[in-house]
Design a protein around this nucleic acid. Sequence first.
DNA 1: GAATAATATGTCTAAACTGACATATCATTA
DNA 2: TAATGATATGTCAGTTTAGACATATTATTC
Lengths: 104, 104
Amino acid sequence: MEKEKLERLSKAGWKAAGTEEFLGLSSAEAALVELRLRLSDKLKQRRRTMKLSQTAFAKSIRSSQSRVAKMEASDSTVSIDLLIRSLFGSGITLQELSETISDR
Amino acid sequence: MEKEKLERLSKAGWKAAGTEEFLGLSSAEAALVELRLRLSDKLKQRRRTMKLSQTAFAKSIRSSQSRVAKMEASDSTVSIDLLIRSLFGSGITLQELSETISDR
DNA sequence: GAATAATATGTCTAAACTGACATATCATTA
DNA sequence: TAATGATATGTCAGTTTAGACATATTATTC
């Protein structure tokens, strides 16, 4: 995992409980974190494509600006559930979700 | 969405809050539910391939037999987070997760 | 460079989720 | 059909996550 990504993560409140790999992440944990990053990047990308502010986007998915900011930052208080619900709320399809997860 | 699937869902405690489509599911809600079904099916399939009882599998992912049963049943008290964490815990890759979501 | 908009961060209470346990139902087989 | 193992269901107390709000920081525009 790249340095930039790790900085982003520790900034977002991540400090793994696990035992393996870099920064103490087990491979399962690493996969989870990677997944989160991909989902949050996709969300930010979609919001920007829609040309909405976080506030406007939040309203459209019935959330709040602060939560959207945290989602986009992959904050550790944000669940994968919320990320996915938000993506679906923004109109993404299962197919696109699948591609979001595998792409790279 | 097929009848069988709907029965399975209402049995699992689902009764949508939404406004559109069958059983009152909005398309975003429907996508979420469909996602859950695919994840829980995959989980059950993996456990069976590993030839583990729910109890043994639960132990391996640090959960409980009852929760595993609920995961496999797509129970409404089970989060997507837990499903995905369990899949990663069972050794699935991001690629396989992606395929699980799009397949069908 | 002040004003304004956008985004980030910290914190709260309520709601949702979790593992665990008890117990019920169903399946297998002796 | 009794016994044993597997799975399902209900409940609960502890934990995590949610939206909301306040406020800080950063961008944009005048």
